[in-house]
Write a protein that binds this DNA or RNA. Structure first.
Length: 201
DNA sequence: AGTGCGATTGACT
DNA sequence: GTCAATCGCACTA
């Protein structure tokens, strides 16, 4: 498994969102107990929140909460939504420019049993289908906010085994502004993609 | 200092 | 399909 270098990440938020389909997300929790170990999955669904996007968290300028979105591309931005679900993003522009790519779904690869334990279900399709479930399956929490996903650590990006299948795109899910922008990317036909059936073909 | 609101999920009718 | 849970924080005053 080869870690992605920053130079490999395309410049531009939408380009990065598309590029990440078929890549791997790896979580390496210290093996200090029953919840420790390595989990990973293939990224099958992303959403781009480019600079100037009214639906993006960086739209109103930098604040302490959104600071990680302003890091050079390839850093993690983790936040809590609805008081219940953690979301994991990849910062996507030059340092000082606020933008990100939301990771919405994984096809589980390694550490299936660990994911099952963390998620409280053995339904493989549901382990990491949806941004909150993805974060739970890989034990992503706010302590990872701001870390470099191109460096050794608790969470990082890796190259995929093969080339991804055909990539579809659609409007983004669950937002109230800029609802018509086709900035969601997904692997066509994958059962691990979230959203209604019509948004998975 | 108080208020409103989510880039969702899971339980329930 | 509907709906409440639950929390940090940005925004207003």
């Amino acid at each position: 498994m080869r870690r992605l270098t920053r130079a490999e990440l395309p410049i531009g938020t939408s380009a990065l969102a598309r590029f990440l389909i078929g890549k791997l997300l790896v979580s390496e929790y210290p093996e200090d107990g029953i919840t420790g170990g390595r989990t990973s999955g293939r990224i099958v669904e992303t959403e781009a929140y480019p600079p100037g996007d009214a639906a993006g968290h960086a739209f109103r300028g930098p604040t302490p909460r959104h600071q990680a979105l302003y890091l050079e591309r390839g850093h993690a931005y983790v936040y809590l939504a609805y008081g219940t679900s953690l979301m994991c993003n990849v910062s996507s522009e030059a340092a000082g420019v606020g933008a990100g790519v939301l990771l919405r779904a994984l096809e589980p690869l390694e550490g299936i049993e660990l994911m099952e334990a963390r998620r409280g279900t053995t339904k493989r399709l549901d382990l990491a289908r949806g941004p909150g479930r993805l974060a739970a399956a890989l034990a992503i929490d706010r302590s990872l906010n701001g870390i470099d996903l191109c460096a050794p650590g608790r969470l990082w990006l890796a190259a995929g085994a093969g080339k991804p299948g055909p990539i579809g795109r659609s409007p983004r899910i669950g937002i109230t502004r800029e609802v018509d922008r086709p900035w969601r990317f997904y692997e066509r036909g994958s059962p691990f993609v979230s959203g209604p059936a019509r948004l998975r073909v």
